[in-house]
Simulated scan of single mutants.
Amino acid sequence: MLRAATENDVGTIRRLRNQQANRDVSITSHEITADEHAAWWAKTSVDPARRVLIYTRDGATAGVVNFFDLDGTTGAWGFFLDADGLAERGETLPAWIEIMREATAYAFDELGLEVLTGEVLEHNTVVRQMNRRFRFVEGTPETLYGGGREITVIPISLRKQDRRKGQST
Results as ranks from 00 to 15, higher is better:
Ile13Ser: 05
Arg14Asn: 13
Arg14Trp: 10
Arg15Tyr: 11
Arg15His: 12
Leu16Asn: 04
Asn18Val: 11
Ala21Phe: 00
Asn22Lys: 05
Arg23Glu: 03
Asp24Gln: 12
Val25Leu: 11
Val25Met: 12
Ser26Ala: 14
Ser26Phe: 06
Ile27Ala: 14
Ile27Leu: 15
Ser29Thr: 10
His30Ser: 09
Thr33Asn: 01
Ala34Arg: 09
Ala34Gly: 03
Ala34Trp: 06
Asp35Ile: 04
His37Ala: 05
His37Gln: 07
Ala39Gln: 02
Trp41Phe: 10
Trp41Tyr: 11
Ser45Met: 09
Asp47Cys: 01
Pro48Val: 00
Ala49Lys: 05
Ala49Met: 02
Ala49Tyr: 00
Arg50Gln: 08
Arg50Asp: 01
Arg50Tyr: 02
Arg50Met: 06
Arg51Trp: 04
Val52Gln: 12
Ile54Tyr: 05
Ile54Cys: 03
Ala60Gly: 02
Thr61Val: 14
Ala62Glu: 04
Val65Ser: 04
Val65Met: 07
Leu70Cys: 14
Gly72Cys: 08
Gly72Asp: 08
Thr74Glu: 15
Gly75Glu: 10
Phe79Ser: 09
Phe80Leu: 10
Asp82Phe: 03
Ala83Cys: 01
Ala83Gln: 05
Ala83Glu: 02
Asp84His: 03
Gly85Glu: 06
Gly85Ala: 08
Gly85Phe: 04
Gly85Cys: 06
Leu86Ala: 04
Leu86Asp: 01
Ala87Cys: 00
Ala87Arg: 07
Glu88His: 08
Arg89Trp: 01
Gly90Leu: 03
Leu93Met: 14
Leu93Gly: 11
Pro94Gln: 07
Ile97Tyr: 13
Ile97Glu: 13
Glu98Gly: 15
Ile99Phe: 09
Met100Tyr: 08
Arg101Phe: 09
Glu102Ile: 01
Ala103Pro: 07
Ala105Leu: 11
Ala107Phe: 11
Ala107Thr: 09
Gly112Val: 06
Gly112Thr: 06
Gly112Phe: 09
Glu114Asp: 15
Val115Cys: 13
Leu116Trp: 07
Leu121His: 07
His123Phe: 15
His123Arg: 14
His123Pro: 02
Val127Ser: 15
Arg128Met: 10
Arg128Gly: 14
Arg128Leu: 09
Gln129Pro: 00
Gln129Ser: 14
Met130Ala: 14
Asn131Ser: 15
Arg132Lys: 11
Arg132Met: 07
Arg133Phe: 10
Arg133Tyr: 11
Arg133Ala: 13
Phe134Asn: 12
Arg135Asp: 06
Glu142Cys: 05
Thr143Pro: 01
Leu144Asp: 03
Tyr145Ser: 13
Tyr145Cys: 05
